[in-house]
Design a binder for these strands. Structure first.
Lengths: 275, 275
DNA sequence: CAGAACAGTGTCCATTGGATACAGTTTTCT
DNA sequence: AGAAAACTGTATCCAATGGACACTGTTCTG
């Protein structure tokens, strides 16, 4: 009854209703009980194997049988370490995220946030299955929370309010994810290996041929943009726009706070947003 | 052999390798052959039923058996209309997206893009399963392409290049998706019904209790931001930042093109981005 | 040393997406 | 009219999935 080892320690009045198992695995102490035979497997080994499988064949290639087979064990033996596949995926996510990048505490917020976004993008490029795995309601693990912490630390001295800082992290994350989404979409298919944006243009062109009257703006945009396209151009473009918008807001805030030092925080204190 | 009805009409030299079936279903003419009994089902009915199931119980609640059972048919009868579940999901996506919002051709780009983002957000709120369904490589349907077209039309006269316009659409879409992601994450769980951001704060607080030394920036940001938080505040905040950044770029472009009319396109021609 | 706590396995089950073969219906061709 | 072809819906079968449960064997503690 109470010895399943997965239930949370407290009485259960947690906001994580069904996901207490994930929370316990992600955050709990995993002290091995000192009775019975030593486990031949480990959570780390299982998780790493599952991640390796997902890196190769996507999240669909991760099944209990395959993970167990890769380790020369039976499927059910995994359930001694993990209460279910959902929890295994949660572990995979947090392990694959890895340690957040170290930021110098005195670094300026803009380059810090830029490298943060770049590192996050690299993580998504290394583990494209994170895009399909980290959707829907789930419990954040220590690494995932660490990434958020890292970005918030960069924004601590910007004058933004707490919720604005959180919203900023959400904004940048959403952009990086969106780009990773498209990049992953182009990494498969018949034209694997060519420049990704060319594949996108090719796919769009194939759809647009004979339909340019229905999609005139798309047609002209694709035609005009097909010439110059680099790999991470979309990521850079969006990121610069976001950072520009943030800088404008931060400068405005600084100007409101102390008008005499308005030109110090940002390069420009203009009222760029006359909504 | 050649009469399966799902293969593309042409020889098959398409960039959609495995997804020719989706492309044919999404874009092809679905003229009914005039031999044999009339179909008792229709693609539209199947798709609508599947969407209704997904709206209620998520994408996981959509199985061929359930859809067929809902229609009082056998599972295999659906395969007369849809080559596989992948294609059914593709149809669900494009149907759920619906018609893009109509924009006046002479509307200013900023309000147009803002309402576009709001409508997109509403779609994601109506069909949260779109977030998990529309990941990974897939074929865009006419409605999805129509949404892109709609946004590009708003950006046509901004002076942005074709790829910049496309990158802008990707940027805004990524933000809206990111917000919808978080909103959907909070729509479930034990505290369903309360204000979503309060649930997020509660979950974060539960994780942060006793660990504020490990996540100082997060702790203070959550503490400072817990007071004032509205429903769509995160969406609005990020959107305004993006639009600010875009406005800055557009104004700079206009200034470069014709310095005398610099103050016309944007409110400010300052060099806000000294990368 | 005896029993409790533990690890790994074998077996079973419901459900999933899908292939295939078949019976019944409707239209077209001879 | 009659026959063959094309089409619809169904029944049956299959591999793979996540997971429950009972079981054997191992190891540490009282």
């Amino acid at each position: 009854m109470a010895g399943d080892g997965w239930s949370a320690g407290d009485g259960g009045s947690s906001v994580f209703g069904d996901q207490a198992g994930s929370a316990a695995l992600l955050w709990g102490e995993r002290g091995r009980p000192s009775r019975g035979p030593k486990p031949a497997l480990s959570l780390e080994r299982i998780t790493r194997t599952a991640i390796a499988l997902a890196d190769l064949g996507g999240l669909g290639a991760v099944s209990m049988q395959r993970v167990a087979g890769e380790l020369d064990f039976t499927k059910m033996s995994l359930y001694r370490y993990v209460p279910g596949k959902t929890e295994l995926v949660a572990l995979m996510i947090d392990t694959a995220m890895g340690e957040p990048p170290a930021v110098a505490p005195d670094a300026a917020w803009r380059p810090a946030l830029r490298t943060w976004a770049g590192e996050l993008s690299a993580v998504f490029r290394r583990h494209p299955w994170l895009l399909e795995a980290a959707v829907g309601p789930r419990v954040m693990g220590p690494h995932e929370l660490g990434w958020t912490e890292c970005a918030l630390a960069a924004l601590a001295r910007t004058g933004l309010s707490g919720s604005e800082q959180l919203d900023t992290v959400v904004l940048v994350t959403g952009h990086v994810r969106g780009i990773a989404q498209i990049t992953a979409s182009m990494g498969v298919g018949s034209a694997r290996g060519t420049h990704p944006e060319q594949v996108l243009s090719a796919a769009l062109n194939e759809l647009l041929v004979g339909r340019s009257d229905r999609f005139p703006a798309l047609t002209s945009a694709v035609a005009a943009g097909a010439a110059e396209c680099g790999r991470d151009q979309a990521l850079e473009f969006g990121l610069e726009r976001i950072l520009d918008g943030l800088e404008s807001l931060i400068a405005r805030r600084a100007a409101d706070a102390s008008p005499d030092t308005a030109r110090k925080a940002g390069t420009d204190g203009g009222d760029a947003t006359t909504t």
